[in-house]
Amino acid sequence: MSTPPMDELFGDIDLEWEHRKNRAFRSLCFLSSILGLAALALLIADVLWEAYRGVSEYDIGIIHFITSTGSVNPDRAGMYGALVGSVLLIVLASIMTFFIGVGAAIYLEEYAPDTRLVRLIDANLANLAGVPSVVYGLVCFGLLINGPLDLGRIILVGAIALALVVLPIIIVSAMEALRAVPDSVRNGSYAIGATRWQTIRRVVLPAAMPGIMTGTILAIANAWGQTAPLLMVGAIASARHVPTGPFDDITALTVTIFDWAFRFQDQFHVLAAMGIVGLLVVLLGMNMVAIYIRSRYEKELS
């Protein structure tokens, strides 16, 4: 920079200013990224604080809260029935979607010819993933409760609504897992005389299974947190009701939280917070299982 021609060349550029601008922008970007995480921390702190108030101010026993079933009286309210309903819902929804979803993904990744129909299916899949979950609930309400099929407001209908919400997610993530299996693995199997299905069942699927499981668990976690589709098919906060099977009245943890959050008494507000803690703990468990599977099997096939 000290030679005269260079000085002339860059004479009109204030390097100091350029560097300061760069540093300022870097800080701005960093702050923005922190903002999202800060919001997350605040949210969790807020929920934990409100739940803690429930235990300290209102003397709600945690064991009592988990084991008793929701009541109009906030002193005796609990989340047991709602929890059972939620578990039934996602178990049924998982059974309905896992095999169909993985089957559909196998077809699209391994078999599908590049025809117009397949391209239509592909585009349709992308759109289904973007349909708001409340619309799926509305369609089930119109078709399965008030439409040609009158099944009533039962757990099974809620599970179908959840299944519709998560099916596109499972298909897309399973497709990604199948795509990650290298072609050399398939060709090795073909070379020793295996048919396409033998190759998929014995070679491709086992290799893709960790990825498929991770995607499925995350999709089920999504279903676990859904509220709107369940409200649309008539889910209610569980009053004194513990569901026992797919044909029982529908109730769910998220719907119960929604009901509590809307009541005016402060005690219901802290009950909602305690329900949310329960909801998030289960969610955390699912995510940890997904992370464990991902890290355990990640490096095997590369």
Partner: peptide, 30 residues
């Protein structure tokens, strides 16, 4: 084996056709 291969392909196509059915149901009901 090859016959089974084709059978499986048909079954898998049924799986994917669920997504088309869902779309039709959405349009029809709404």
């Amino acid at each position: 084996d090859q016959r089974r291969d084709r059978l499986v392909q048909g079954g898998l196509f049924l799986c994917i056709s669920f997504t088309l059915l869902t779309t039709l149901a959405i349009f029809w009901v709404l």
